[in-house]
Simulated scan of single mutants.
Amino acid sequence: MTKIIGSPTRYIQGKGELKKLAAHASSLGKKLFVIVDKNIQDIVKPDIELSVKAQDVDILFESFQGECCMSEINRIIDIVKTNGCDVIVGVGGGKTHDTSKAVAHYTKKPVVIVPTIASTDAPCSSLSVIYSDEGVFDKYLFLPTSPNIVLVDTEVVSKAPARLLIAGIGDAMATYFEARACYQSEADNCLGGKCTKAAMSLARLCYETLLEDGKAATLAVQAKVCTKAVENIIEANTYLSGIGFESGGLAGAHAVHNGLTAIAATHQLYHGEKVAFGTLVQLVLENAPRQEIEEVLKLCHEVGLPTTLADLKITEVKPEEIMAVAKLVCAPGDTIGNMPFDVTPEDVYAAILGADELGKSYQ
């Protein structure tokens, strides 16, 4: 039995770390190519330029055009080659990161990932999700290694809209429960091996951190301040969940997220918001202890995550639509197959409605 755990070579987190970007990256090369989300360029560029002044490093900025697609990846590859850059830096959100990782992979350069939000656990992963030019899913690009450096400036992240951090809590909340399911079923993790005890421990610590600091961190970011609780939640959302999901494995919660895409109204929700409801559905499928389900419901209620279909903008529950979701959840190859028991569309249909009723009764 092969066990595999993946991780970035170095994870760096703290207030003001963006001003040290060049110092951290200089160990990888001397000419940085910074791909930056155009919506935040004015916010982050001064600190990045300041970081270069104290280092023997050159820097070239390029605005990310908004879609992680092969045409954008190839456009940036041409610029990197023309300018002889030797380190790729991705600053922004998930699609900026995935594009940067892909560019680094195809050009055989090291990559530094700089998340400016903590809404998902993608920054630490060895994966890029590639879309068409029109934004339709195309393929997964599985990378041979995780990023060389993940650098998180918590001062920047704490000033992003609070809903993004809350969505990250939803995504991170599923990590422990999905890893636990994969551990029980001995399913392969996202790296093609079995879950290690270390990955399982990180996944559990992730959940415990959310319970301890989720509410306090949510209140703090609503006030645009970075407290110790915010620091802890950023680490949980980004690193603990990132290692936990990739090295632990995915199961029911993310499969439910994928199934919910069958209902157009849910497209208004962030990834982590839908995953949070998916966690409740997975727990109902497992017939988890009442205390555990109520613990998850309490956390969702405290931070403002969806617990009902109405919260997911599904205001009229149509049986045929819920069954369409359930069938998509059970599509061949989706992660519902990692549950430690067989799951049918009828099981998922019942669990979705059961989770909805539990959410309503808790409210």
Rank of each mutant, 00 (worst) to 15 (best):
D311G: 03
Y349T: 07
E357N: 12
D334P: 01
L299Q: 07
T315H: 12
E320I: 14
N287P: 01
I322E: 10
F277H: 04
E346V: 08
P340T: 12
D347I: 02
L305N: 03
I352M: 12
F277G: 00
K298G: 00
L309T: 09
P332G: 09
A276F: 05
Y270G: 12
K327M: 00
D356I: 02
T315C: 08
N338E: 09
F277P: 02
A351L: 06
E316D: 12
E316G: 00
I314F: 07
G272M: 02
E316V: 14
I322P: 05
L305R: 08
A276H: 04
A276E: 09
E320H: 13
L280V: 05
F341K: 07
D334L: 09
E346A: 02
V275E: 01
F277I: 00
L285P: 00
A331Q: 15
V348Q: 06
K313N: 11
T344Q: 06
G337Y: 12
T307L: 08
V281E: 12
E294P: 00
E346Q: 15
R290A: 14
L269D: 09
A326M: 07
E273S: 01
T279V: 15
E302I: 06
V303N: 06
M339V: 11
G278L: 09
E302N: 14
A351Y: 11
G304N: 04
Y270F: 15
L309Q: 06
P332N: 12
C330T: 11
I336V: 15
I352F: 09
A310K: 14
I293F: 07
T315Q: 11
I314N: 01
D311T: 04
F341S: 01
G272L: 02
K298C: 06
V275G: 02
C300H: 13
T279L: 15
L283V: 12
K298I: 08
V303H: 05
H301L: 03
E316I: 12
A351P: 03
I336C: 07
D347V: 02
C300L: 03
K360T: 13
G278C: 05
Q282V: 15
Q282H: 13
T307Q: 10
L297F: 11
P306R: 03
I336Q: 04
K318E: 13
L299R: 11
T315W: 03
I293S: 02
P345K: 10
T344P: 00
D342R: 14
Q291H: 10
G272R: 02
M339G: 03
P332V: 12
G278V: 05
I322S: 08
L358D: 09
T335V: 05
L283K: 01
A351N: 11
I322L: 07
P332S: 13
Q268D: 01
A324G: 12
G354V: 14
H271L: 03
P289L: 02
